[in-house]
Design a protein around this nucleic acid. Sequence first.
DNA 1: TATTATAGTTACCTTAGATAACAATTACCC
DNA 2: GGGTAATTGTTATCTAAGGTAACTATAATA
Lengths: 132, 132
Amino acid sequence: MLYRPFESQLNVQLAKHDLYRAQWSVLHYLATNGSATLVELAHYQRVEKPTVTRTVTRLEELNYLEHIPGKDRREKRVRLSPLGESLYKEVRLTVDQFEQEILKGISEKDQLAAIQIMKEIRSNLISKETVK
Amino acid sequence: MLYRPFESQLNVQLAKHDLYRAQWSVLHYLATNGSATLVELAHYQRVEKPTVTRTVTRLEELNYLEHIPGKDRREKRVRLSPLGESLYKEVRLTVDQFEQEILKGISEKDQLAAIQIMKEIRSNLISKETVK
DNA sequence: TATTATAGTTACCTTAGATAACAATTACCC
DNA sequence: GGGTAATTGTTATCTAAGGTAACTATAATA
């Protein structure tokens, strides 16, 4: 069950906007959380820091991000630029439509149940992480 | 919900066996289906042919696969070698354990419901594919 | 028989993950 | 307060994994 996600299908949708999954993941985090440091993004994506550095650098080159001052001089805090925000909204439509299509025929009740289970799995993952 | 799978966590488990996700995916398909051509694997993974060529080549280098005659002289049909089979069983244990951990605290009933929904999503994806 | 379709490969590009080693800054401890 | 720890981020380097374009070889078909 778990080792066969449908990422490649999502990639097809994102490709329409010249976006990649890790990039989309960052945009999504910033759209829902306002701003983030690179370490914050690394935790979110469960990925090492250099990976985030690269993805963020690319998004900066595309002018989708802008800097805001952090509490440190070490940390680098970013948020969506106006261009990034408008892109996000646009891609959001595509992704929403994609999700609707693949959930077609599944009752609202079942959908909510599935989402709930995903949340529990995620919290299991996090507690597993913190133990380590 | 959909754009945040837990692949990176699975990768950690696979890394214990020096395996990567795409490689594992091929091993899993062959373990459950006996044999396959490259086109068959490409459809299964929803990926282009050159991608499969590379993954299969790597698995061949590692002696996890062996050839069997196909109905054509074009097609290349592969299955697990004895080494591949024993590796699969070994990794299977790790993956099963991982799944148990992340499903901890979720009732059997809910788990089955989630798996059912995944199946429906997958069949939606396939019918979407065939339309195209 | 000539054309078209299918299976696979090669070459090349990009994204995305990992480690190792490092600089800069901050936190902490005696 | 000064020296050591820890934190944040970057650079360099490696591999996996995706894509497209162009190609060969074989099979199917018109």
